[in-house]
Structure formats: C-alpha cells, structure tokens
Computed example of a mutant assay.
Amino acid sequence: MRIRTAAIVLGTAAALSALVVPSANADEAQGDTAITKVVVNGGKPIIVGTADKTFSYTISGSDSSGLAYGGAFLWRGTSLDAPSGVTGFGETETCSATACTVTAKVSPKLDELPSSQAGTWNVLAELDGKDGDIRELDKATTIKVLRGSHLTVNATPEPVKKGKTITVTGKLTRANWATSKYAGYTSQSVQLQFRKKSATTYTTVKTIKSASTGALKTTVTASVDGYWRFAFGTNATTGGTAATADYVDVQ
C-alpha cells in the first residue's frame, strides 16, 4: 500500500480507516527495501493542545536502488481493519540514501479525536525504493499522543516582609480535544517550586492537589527574594507543564 493514495481523501479518521482496510493486518514487503528504525517526534511524546500539532517521522532504511518515498501515520486500536482512531498522516518525496523524514500533524478537530484517545498510538511506516520496491510495517513503533496542559500562578502579597505568609494560587487545566478548550484538571498532584533570585534551578517546596475546578492554593513563609511557580509532571494521558514564575520581593 502506498500511503499517498490515502492523501486524496484524508479528512476524517473514518475516511482514512476505510482506505487502510485493503492492506489488511500484515506488513507488506516487495523487493529488497528495508525499514531499520522509525523515530517519531524525536522520541518525545506528541503533546496536543486545542490546535493542530506538527511533528515529524524519521524512517531509516535501505534499498539497492535508493530510497524514493516515505510515508507514515498514527493509528490506535487492535486492528488496522477497524482502528479506533487514525491521525498524523504525512509523506515525503525527498529522501537521503539512508532515511526519509516525514512532516505530519495531529489534528484533533479534523480527525474527530475524542480526549479518551490520549495515550499510546501505533505507527504505520512505509518506504519505497526507486525501483518500485516497497516495505511497510503496520506497527513500526509506538508513540504517546498526550493532551496538553496549562498552569498559572500568583504569589501575594508583593512585596512581603520576611517571616510573613505568602499565599500562592493558580489553576491546572488540560486540553479537551472535542471542545477545543482547556478545562480544570481535577485531583492532580502539583508541585510548588521556588528559585532564589541568584539561583538557576528550582526546588520543590511542597506538593498539593488540584481542586475540582483545577484550582490550586497553598501558603508558605517568606524568607528570601525569588520566583514561585507550580509544576505538573507528565502522566499516562497528559503532558507536563510549568507555570511562568511569579517574583516576590522579600523585605
């Protein structure tokens, strides 16, 4: 199956799913074309907010005649005959002797991806030789496609006297792919971090839980000038993030 045939009608996951059915659930091999390695997004999770997310595939391999074409897309489920989701289509006509680099995008709205699809996706990859040989791997590798998250922070009062209480508030939200909006992320562990004015790294002061609306609130004792922020780590469905720090002058 040459992936470029799918590009003609690519518009929804359902349309692309219908096209991949003829390939069945088996890798395709013709001639001496080989795929040796597939790297998606530099090996990092693809974090998708409310807009399209562009990323790349690097499909390494070989063919005695040279490589002429590379293509790939993401699919989720147990079978290519009936995938639960398809997205991230991309192809290229420009290849080196050892690899094809493919630019692609995940489009939650266009591909009608529900937020429940966040997690691990399969990667279908294809290389074609200049002599018409082909190699396709239905599950060349896997990659995590995660929902984006946002954090805010506000530390008050500013300035504050040494030894007095600082109240730090904020909110943790994450992308809803169906509504194209960010909404409060409930009951998540979030770190309150501090960096002294003269320092370059942050230290975790305490960990708190987000409220039902995603709201965050805690207190600390003022000691020295510095920057306060909230930080949230990546989990199975959502990418991590850190708030833009708020500086507090301690007098």
Rank of each mutant, 00 (worst) to 15 (best):
V38T: 01
Y247P: 12
D225W: 14
A118Y: 04
S212E: 09
F232K: 04
Y57L: 06
G233C: 14
G132I: 05
I46S: 00
A99R: 05
T141G: 05
L74N: 03
R4A: 13
G71H: 03
K44L: 05
K139V: 05
S223T: 15
T5D: 15
G61Q: 03
G240Y: 10
L192V: 03
S96N: 04
A236K: 12
L113A: 03
K130F: 08
R174K: 12
A178M: 08
K130I: 06
T98G: 12
A18Y: 10
P159G: 12
K130Q: 13
V102A: 11
T5N: 15
D32I: 01
E126S: 11
F89K: 13
T36L: 03
N122E: 06
T92P: 12
S198I: 06
T152A: 07
T152S: 11
N25D: 07
K105I: 05
L110R: 14
A222I: 08
A24D: 00
V40S: 03
T218Y: 14
K130G: 11
L16F: 12
G66R: 08
Y182P: 02
S149I: 01
A222R: 11
L19N: 13
Y185I: 01
P45E: 02
L137S: 14
V9C: 13
E136N: 14
E93Q: 15
V106E: 02
K44Q: 10
E93D: 15
V102N: 11
I47R: 01
T98L: 10
A29T: 00
K217L: 07
S189Y: 15
K206R: 13
A7I: 09
A18N: 12
L146Q: 02
N154Y: 06
F194C: 09
C100P: 11
R4W: 13
G184Q: 01
F232C: 05
A183W: 10
K171V: 02
A211I: 03
K139R: 12
V160N: 14
G88F: 03
G11F: 07
K197H: 11
V153L: 04
R174H: 12
K181M: 00
A222S: 09
L67C: 06
V20K: 06
T203C: 08
R147A: 06
G240R: 07
S212D: 11
D111L: 14
A51R: 09
K161R: 15
C100W: 06
T36P: 04
T203A: 14
T234C: 08
F230L: 11
K109M: 15
L124Y: 10
A155S: 11
T234E: 14
T179R: 01
I59M: 04
T36S: 12
K197A: 13
K44D: 05
S212F: 07
A211C: 09
A178I: 03
W177R: 01
A140H: 07
Y227N: 15
V250M: 07
S223A: 15
V48H: 02
D52N: 10
N25Q: 00
K44A: 10
L146M: 03
A199H: 07
V39H: 08
L113Q: 02
Q30H: 00
S56H: 09
P83E: 01
Y202L: 03
N25Y: 00
E91D: 15
S60C: 06
P45Q: 02
S23L: 09
T12A: 10
T219G: 05
S62R: 06
K209H: 05
K130H: 09
G90Q: 05
Q30G: 00
